[in-house]
Amino acid sequence: MDHHHTHSTNPRELQMARSMCWHCQSEVSGEYFCERCVKVQPVSKDLDYFTCMNLPRRLTIDLPQLEAKFYELSRAFHPDFYQNKSEAEQAISLNNAATLNTAYRTLRDPIQRAEYLLDLEAGAVKEIRTSPPADLFEEILELQDTLNEFRTADRTSAAGQELRAKLQAEQRILERRKQDMEQQLQQLFADWDALQDRSEATSQARSERDRLLKQMREILSNRTYVKNIVNDLVTTIG
């Protein structure tokens, strides 16, 4: 991701984001349509989804605004409107529509939005090293064993019933834990946004930023592990 293109409010960076219309070679600066020849412009690969949707890069976003922008751009890029246009324009509109869909789906979901923002802010997800939650892993693997036992057990037998009850209890506990994690994430999201709004360049702000990124990364990962095992529980015990 090229970060030069992401803050359209900074005039210096806007300068750098300038490029040419593929059709009439006049200058375009991030607009989706050329001001002179009105041809559709390809959405830059370097454009992050927040900028693409004209939203500030925050973890709490205005969902109605996102939806409105999505519909507006969907209409603008819809391939149906390009059937009588040139091949180049058809290809651009199709690509733009695909990018737009991905951007919308990513930003609409708070968890995916956070994963995406973490990618933007901290590079590849894997680069933030978190210690693997060994306790959680042990628990998951043990639970998988019980699940396997249940899969092969006679479900109508007393032992089978007992296993089911045990797994159901585990499922409730894990679902509760997932909710707790989501609540913690909500708080971290709010803290992150507040930090961004203050936009301080102190070393204190930097370490706070790193702390929040690391914590979000950790909880998001653990939530994925828990979510997976809960899904497995739900599909197996029904």
Partner: peptide, 12 residues
């Protein structure tokens, strides 16, 4: 004991 946070796989 390792895990892949992207897909939720756990390996011991």
């Amino acid at each position: 004991m390792v895990g892949a946070p992207e897909c939720g796989d756990v390996m011991k």
